[in-house]
């Protein structure tokens, strides 16, 4: 939410995201030198991720949040590419839908374009290495990536607004508890949708 974080936190999270952003841009730039046509691909993929993020899934009713699509992207393009792509998606959400926000962009990039994709990608690699079926691995990767994003966001909020009695811990429990109502169904939906998409793509 625009303006929700105190200035020090907003700027701090932006600073924390910056090195990842630089690394993501550098890494993508390298791959573009070898495959210049991937520039268009990432651009179109960003549009697709934005579209998915604005999608209302059939099971989720009355929620103000949406799937992120970055889990799918991380599986397809790797987590490094998802930093700039996720940044673009989040910026567009702020500017075109007034979701998220410009002042909270740093914090959101950290949770959604860095933590989420890395968790998804890591889980997928790990589960694949254990020989889990592709569908289950994809489901868990996307679903847990989504949950990791939401846990990070709750932590960010808890840190900014600690409970006067119980401190950050209690505050985290509060934020995580409230947002679980919307985020857990969304994470499951995102996992399901990602499996469906990956399976459909595999048939082409």
């Amino acid at each position: 939410m625009e303006g929700f974080l105190p200035p020090a936190h907003a700027l701090g999270w932006a600073a924390a995201s910056l090195p990842f952003m630089a690394w993501g841009l550098h890494s993508v730039g390298q791959s573009l030198r070898a495959h210049p046509e991937r520039r268009m691909l990432l651009g179109v993929a960003a549009a697709f991720a934005f579209l998915l993020s604005a999608l209302k899934l059939p099971s989720v009713t009355g929620s103000c949040s949406h799937p992120t699509g970055v889990g799918l992207g991380a599986l397809l393009f790797g987590p490094a590419a998802m930093v700039p792509v996720g940044f673009v998606v989040l910026l567009f959400q702020a500017l075109l839908l007034a979701h998220g926000g410009v002042t909270t962009l740093g914090a959101n990039v950290f949770s959604m374009a860095i933590v989420g994709p890395f968790v998804s990608y890591g889980i997928f690699r790990m589960l694949s290495a254990f020989g889990l079926s592709r569908s289950l691995a994809v489901f868990l990767a996307a679903c847990l990536g989504d949950l990791a994003t939401y846990v990070t966001t709750s932590l960010q909020l808890a840190w900014a607004f600690p409970d006067p009695v119980g401190g950050i811990q209690v505050s985290f429990a509060k934020f995580a508890g409230i947002f679980a109502l919307t985020q857990v169904p969304i994470a499951i939906s995102e996992g399901l949708l990602t499996v469906l998409v990956v399976n459909a793509m595999a048939r082409f």
């Binding site: 046509e37 268009m40 179109v44 697709f48 399901l192 949708l193 499996v195 469906l196 459909a200």
Partner: peptide, 24 residues
């Protein structure tokens, strides 16, 4: 609805590559 969404999203994901190639 779920089946249709999955099919559509999968087909659109494939389009991402085709559209990128056409733009290129």
């Amino acid at each position: 609805a779920w089946r249709s969404l999955g099919l559509l999203a999968g087909q659109m994901a494939v389009q991402v590559w085709q559209r990128a190639a056409a733009l290129q």
